[in-house]
């Protein structure tokens, strides 16, 4: 049965996670939900499957370890939590207890980039860099709530550790009409076509990239936007095609510029002897960004849609 969420153009990523997990829990008796005290969205799962729900309290390392133990017994544990603590406090457990044994644990992290609103303790600007460096780990960044659901469902047949980065987790914009796309680990989406340049983005920044593309289109510049939701593994064909057809590449992401998708793409360029005419990256510089909304901070640090438009116009001069 194909179900989609379609109540307005915004909906809560967390509620999608909660509902989808509940549905998966109903269908598969080896699905577990774990949280280190951030499981508000898991209430229905907890109510209906209390013997497969574990709240460890504020103890992320332990939470990762328990997930490893469950997975060793053939279970599929989903850990829901806040990104910085899930990826940094428990980093070694993620690596050694989970990735070393190649266990099918799913990490669903909320508050990607500078969207948390909690300041630098709660901002998540290193997670992609950290998680992609773990052998056996797959890294996705999702900016469309229906995609979260589809990916969670297809993850049931995926035998490796999987990290899903979500943005703030309150209200997320729908990027794609429900049911119009199929998603696959290792793929990407051409969210808008264009011939003059390509913006490659992930997560919530896909929307920002589309806004920039719209502005540029009004000035006669046709920009392609790629939603590179699968950061590891990366769809190199999609990348190569963009270089060949648009020559100019801009990476836009809510992550440290060093170590994020831009670095993954730079690696692919080096390994594949690929030379775009221009290659720029926009994202978080080496700062602890401080307080403010995601939108305000993007503007302050120069990676919002206005900054993207300026960079592309400069590039095409």
């Amino acid at each position: 049965m194909k179900m989609t969420f379609n109540f307005g153009s915004f909906l809560s990523a967390r509620s999608v996670v909660g509902e989808t997990l509940h549905e998966l829990g109903q269908k598969h008796n080896n699905v577990w939900a774990l949280t280190a005290d951030t499981g508000g969205a898991l209430a229905t799962f907890k109510k209906d499957f209390p013997d497969r729900f574990i709240d460890t309290g504020v103890a992320e390392q332990n939470c990762a370890g328990i997930a490893a133990g469950l997975a060793l017994e053939g279970n599929i544990p989903f850990i829901a939590g806040m990104i910085p603590f899930m990826t940094m406090r428990a980093c070694e457990q993620n690596r050694t207890a989970i990735c070393y044994q190649d266990l099918p644990v799913r990490f669903i992290g909320t508050g990607g980039g500078l969207t948390s609103g909690g300041g630098s303790t709660h901002n998540a600007m290193e997670d992609i860099s950290i998680m992609k460096s773990l052998v056996n780990m797959t890294v996705l960044s999702i900016g469309d709530p229906n995609m979260i659901r589809d990916i969670m469902i297809l993850s049931m047949d995926y035998p490796h550790p999987l990290y899903i980065r979500l943005a703030q987790g309150k209200k997320d914009r729908m990027l794609y009409e429900p049911g119009t796309r199929t998603y696959k680990i290792g793929e990407g989406i051409t969210a808008r076509d264009g011939k003059d340049a390509t913006i490659i983005a992930h997560g919530e920044m896909v929307y920002v990239a589309l806004e920039a593309a719209k502005t540029l289109a009004a000035e006669g510049i046709e920009v392609r936007v790629i939603d590179m939701y699968s950061i590891k593994p990366l769809n190199k064909n999609l990348l190569l095609k963009a270089v060949k057809e648009t020559r100019n590449i801009v990476v836009l992401e809510d992550h440290l510029m060093e170590g994020g998708l831009a670095s993954v793409i730079a690696d692919a360029f080096v390994d594949g002897n690929i030379y775009p005419e221009n290659f720029k990256r926009l994202g978080i510089p080496q700062v602890f960004a401080g307080f403010g909304s995601g939108e305000e901070l993007r503007k302050k640090y120069g990676y919002d849609d206005t900054a993207t438009v300026a960079v592309i116009k400069q590039m095409l001069k």
């Binding site: 013997d51 370890g65 997930a67 133990g69 060793l72 017994e73 279970n75 050694t96 044994q101």
Partner: peptide, 24 residues
């Protein structure tokens, strides 16, 4: 071998996961 180990202090949490699974 039931579990790869070597990084100290990690075994008990994993064992807790095994125990949860068995009980469920």
């Amino acid at each position: 071998v039931e579990c790869s180990t070597g990084s100290l202090g990690q075994g008990l949490a994993i064992a807790v996961g095994l125990a949860f699974s068995a009980r469920q």
